[in-house]
Design a binder for these strands. Structure first.
Lengths: 227, 227, 227, 227
DNA sequence: CATGAATGAGGCTTCATTCAT
DNA sequence: GATGAATGAAGCCTCATTCAT
């Protein structure tokens, strides 16, 4: 397990000891996701995490400075994972419109389990990112900021490039793609927990209504004359 | 001050004693907004809040069960305030398109100070809503949920009705309006704190780029054939 | 109600304002018994009591200095009530042995509701006395002590006199009667909550096994040569 | 000290970390007994206990869940200690009557210091048991109950067996022995703090009057025909 | 490298009491 | 005489972190 090549790497600022390199570290990540998802980041403590693993608080301190670094690690992991999935798609040759549509579909499915990473519950991780990341944005110093949003920026760049292929003159690709990403997250959240705030539905793990909404928004914006 | 008619009322579930009815209560709201904005909800404690007012923890507990209820109060206040502002706009007779444009402009300006409520720093409150509300969504039982999102739903209904006037056949007004609201919040956040994630800029309190982006998105969606 | 002649009076040290003289006062006594029985004296507070009545903390302070005085009031009330019941029995002329037996039976039934005092749940009050009175014994200064145990001493004197009639030479009537009283309390407690500590049973409110045990103990002691 | 074999063990439900195994734990027990005896269980707090040791509240919480578990620990310790003392007596071969008399004498002396347990003030502990245990009886769920009263039950069984040797047909040995135990406690209490409730006296640590009273009660009951 | 133990600081909440009406 | 509001002090408990093994 620890010998399998890991398909992406995270900045060293995001941990003290790389949790992917030991079994104990992987359990930390796994349990941290479970606990944060269930109780919220605010109520996570190293004591509870240690009890869940089970291990000791002191052991966790060897891997992460504090729970904030652990959260940053998870959020950064999430963005890198989306990039990794996007890269997988690009192996498939296709016309620009189809590739963009696939990318949007992937965003709509951003809460879906990836068996390649056995110890990560991506659906739970996505909920964590949705809930907690706005808070991180406003707390960070620029150092941490860099490490965290490299993944987000790469994503904007890649999907922005697809847009450029389709509509070379579109003026605000980053604003559009970041809106698409955030809209995907929000509409998934609303569909699942506050159905009175949207008409979109998720039925039995089928996110196609979300995907269609994103596609519609994208196409409309690209055709629309920039005001 | 206490005789001035308050233009909207909040559900009784949102407090123990109505903070609008006493000077002490208003100070609580004012200081809570300041502290939450500066340190984040997680780091707010009634002890710190009491020190800021200044008063005592025990006094605050007479008004709010805990800091979670206080946060729910603030978020609900925010949505009711947006409704109130929207109602102000509607007094002005205008053609449907112009009224919708005014509504979107108001959303783009949702972080702007309203002198009518002297003790509320709306810009700070908006940041709080952006940062903390996703967390509330996932923590609530349905009781609290109701009280909290009545304001949000009313907003969707009102702007939805404007859309209906312009485009009676549009199929997903709630999904569209909730996306517009959330996009407004996000783009404001990105423009201010993570400028590498969007091209939109806010210059000297001028939110017009945000407003234009929202209008463009709206018009594009309404013209676009529903897929 | 407040005009009905009260059949016994309590020392003025036991209250600030006589609770028997107002409806509010009676509710205090009634609710205090309920709460102390259910949650224990330690967890009783004037706030909870006020909420139960319902009234305010400040009102209760008009009647009792603090919860300790309230407890002393209740315990003293209990002993006076037992005296009152004993006096009722003595109205019935009977032979000494029968009268003593009736007294013991009354002790065995000390947890039984007396409809004359509508606002007092004697069974609950008895549990309170059993649970809390040992604590009072060791906390009191002699002033309070006097007021509290007058009732207990009168009871010892009365039943001691009956014993004297039967067995004029018995040397330790107070030790015997106080043991009987305490044994009654304890065996009732054990029968109800810790049945593995005694063979005695209480079936459907029938305390006769307890009564028989007390009678047996009394008779045996009186016949036995004092060592 | 930690190597000396401890002559009895307490159920694991009665603590989080065994206080007998560390110096800090022993100090907790010692100081808890002192404070509870002086101020009463109700006024004991982990803060005060920590100050007395001296240590911190957090450290105490590693040993005991709360002060209720600490009280349960002490009460259970007390009953196990009586059993231990009874077992010591039984090493001495003797005729049944003499052994029973020795057992009763031990009960009458249940407040006497045992130098084997240097950190336990048994006289204080006995007062605590007398004052506080009735309260525990009525608060317990059955789980805790089991752990607490195993010691009491064992005591009843052992002394009950002695009675059986003397009077094989006696019908209610548990009721008798539990009454003897409780009478011992009560008469000691009365003799020391409320001398007007009993003729029995304790002079200079001489509990023989109590012992004689218990013996008399026992013999009388055993000779008495069961009603 | 991992663990068991300890603890200063601070979180959340309630209490007991008083004051003004 | 009764009530509503306010508050200093203290309750209970957990956290974040360090140290020694």
């Amino acid at each position: 397990m620890s010998h399998k090549k890991y398909p992406f790497t995270l900045n060293e600022q995001l941990y003290l000891r790389d949790p992917e390199r030991t079994l104990l570290g992987k359990k930390m990540v796994e349990s941290a996701i479970t606990l944060m998802d269930q109780q919220g980041f605010e109520h996570l403590t190293f004591r509870k995490l240690a009890a869940e693993i089970p291990s000791t608080e002191a052991s966790i301190y060897r891997y992460f400075e504090d729970k904030y670094q652990l959260l940053r690690y998870l959020v950064a992991w999430y963005w890198e994972w989306l990039n990794y999935r996007l890269d997988q798609l690009e192996h498939i040759p296709a016309d620009p419109g189809k590739r963009l549509r696939q990318a949007l579909e992937m965003l709509a499915n951003s809460a879906i389990y990836d068996p390649f990473f056995a110890h990560v519950d991506e659906a739970a991780l996505c909920r964590i990112v949705v809930r907690e990341s706005p808070k991180i944005y406003l707390t960070l110093d620029s150092q941490d900021n860099q490490a965290l949003f490299m993944g987000y920026e790469k994503l904007l760049a890649k999907i922005g490039a697809m847009i450029h292929e389709l509509e070379p003159n579109y003026a605000r690709p980053k604003a559009l793609v970041s809106s698409l990403i955030e809209t995907a997250h929000r509409q998934i959240l609303f569909a699942q927990y506050m159905p009175r705030l949207t008409e979109l539905k998720i039925k039995d793990g089928d996110y196609s209504e979300i995907a269609v909404f994103l596609e519609q928004m994208t196409l409309a914006m690209l055709k629309s004359p920039t005001l």
